[in-house]
Design a protein around this nucleic acid. Structure first.
Length: 125
DNA sequence: GCAAACGTGGCT
DNA sequence: AGCCACGTTTGC
């Protein structure tokens, strides 16, 4: 089903007042602490069970965002060129697969989010 | 509760 | 390396 707001999108963006560049490296020191485990943590009925198991095991909590700020999802800076785009191109793969891919238009993808979280942490000593 | 979008794994 | 699919998080 197509929505009539495909080319409209949220006009709010980060231009509401004055987007500040938070180019801190606070999220550059997270060594991807996520394992695949047994691969069963992705099933619907088992996910809750697995998580409960892990909680009891002290592996992680149900709310990682509250426990580990570093795991918190990043947001668009609102100041880069892509962030300033207020309309989807409607032709990129993300736009075409938005229903399934659940990804923002490539033309609107924040440059900071485009980079990997450990972009400056790939080197291993 | 829903829609949008981020994060990551898998595939090519 | 890039794209796709899915899960999950986040804001309204």
């Amino acid at each position: 089903m197509l929505r009539p707001m495909t080319l409209l999108g949220p006009l709010a963006e980060g231009a509401s007042g004055g987007p500040r560049l938070s180019l801190d490296s606070e999220d550059a020191h997270v060594p991807r602490g996520h394992e695949k485990e047994s691969g069963t943590a992705s099933l619907s009925p088992l996910s809750g069970y697995i998580q409960a198991e892990h909680q009891q095991a002290g592996l992680f909590s149900l709310t990682p965002a509250l426990e580990d700020p570093q795991k918190k999802r990043r947001k668009k800076c609102g100041a880069c060129v892509p962030c300033l785009q207020k309309e989807n191109c409607g032709t990129c793969g993300n736009c075409l697969n938005r229903q399934t891919g659940k990804q923002i238009c490539k033309m609107r993808k924040c440059v900071q989010l485009t980079k990997r979280k450990n972009d400056s942490e790939v080197r291993v000593e």
